[in-house]
Design a protein around this nucleic acid. Structure first.
Lengths: 185, 185
DNA sequence: GTCTATACTTCGATAGAC
DNA sequence: GTCTATCGAAGTATAGAC
């Protein structure tokens, strides 16, 4: 899926990779879409758990930022988004998980931002979350194209603002986060 | 390509849509990748020209924001990014066009921002461009999933800041921009 | 330019033996 | 649970007539 795209994932190749027969793939997954759904659910569930840990940090802004910026693989995310654009059921599943991700982020971060004294009228938690997600995904996608115009400046800008609220990043975040790549919804 | 994804674009289906024979497709395009390259170049060139117009507005920030937020189709963009993740030549072509897009944006907007008195140390033009692009793409992708948490607040936040610099949006932008969907790189 | 005809590969999915 | 065997459809690409 990562190397050649979701459309290159065929029952035959899955079977070959697993060292089993094609028919066995259909024994476990009635259609290829069900296989993709199962794959997505497993990855999304793991990412959700990692996010819960990152957000429970005493520095939840750093936690979320490091998770998306250093601990997520845009290629996986992109493949599932592309797949979802053409499969209704997968789109619905991704939407459902996205809401879970977002709800958890909102809960943890709106409390933290209030505690930091950030005016929710000027800087709503939902906007800060959305902007961080959009920017970091964009940065990662551009990196894959070997584009880096403004990347350094933007990372500095964001991290300067996080530092203003939470102080310098405490060690541990990036290490935790970069152990395995997550999805980023 | 939009309905079923780039992988569903086959020589046979292209031929059928065009009402010609399969072999004729290969007469014009040696491989399917060349067809995709030609398709991308045509679209990117048009988008580049539209962007030049939008940035030549007396309100270039509004111009760029409206172009990406109301005048671009994330589905086209996503398909090409997904395709590029697996085809080296297409990735290189997209990277090249992205640099052109970005260079034009930087040229027009860094002049405008300096004129508005924005401190380039705190808010570099390259960062503002990158953030606007990332956020608007994220908003549009989420819309396709019928997700809208924080969308309204974020659009208001961004447009409030643009208004602070350029005053209220003058009519004409959105109209120009929503005539045809563009790519968004 | 445009076509017919064809070679060869791979696909999703199923029936039925073990 | 795991396999063999098979169906019909669709893919990329090419040779060569007109």
């Amino acid at each position: 899926m990562l190397e050649e795209g979701y459309a290159a994932v065929s029952s035959r190749r899955v079977a070959a990779e697993a060292g089993v027969n094609v028919a066995l793939v259909y024994y476990y997954f009635a259609t290829m879409d069900e296989l993709f759904l199962a794959l997505f659910r497993r990855g999304a569930q793991r990412s959700l758990e990692r996010q819960a840990i990152a957000l429970s940090s005493p520095q939840p802004l750093w936690g979320l930022w490091d998770l998306t910026h250093h601990g997520s693989d845009p290629a996986v995310t992109m493949e599932f988004i592309a797949l979802a654009n053409h499969r209704k059921e997968i789109r619905a599943e991704i939407a459902e998980y996205s809401r879970k991700f977002r709800a958890l982020q909102l809960e943890k971060l709106s409390a933290a931002l209030e505690h930091y004294g950030v005016d929710p009228e000027l800087w709503p938690a939902s906007s800060i979350i959305l902007m961080m997600a959009g920017i970091s995904r964009f940065l990662l996608i551009e990196e894959a194209f070997e584009l880096d115009t403004g990347h350094k400046e933007t990372v500095e800008l964001i991290e300067r603002h996080i530092t203003a609220l939470e102080g310098p990043r405490q060690p541990g975040h990036v290490e935790f986060v970069s152990q395995h790549a997550s999805m980023n919804f």
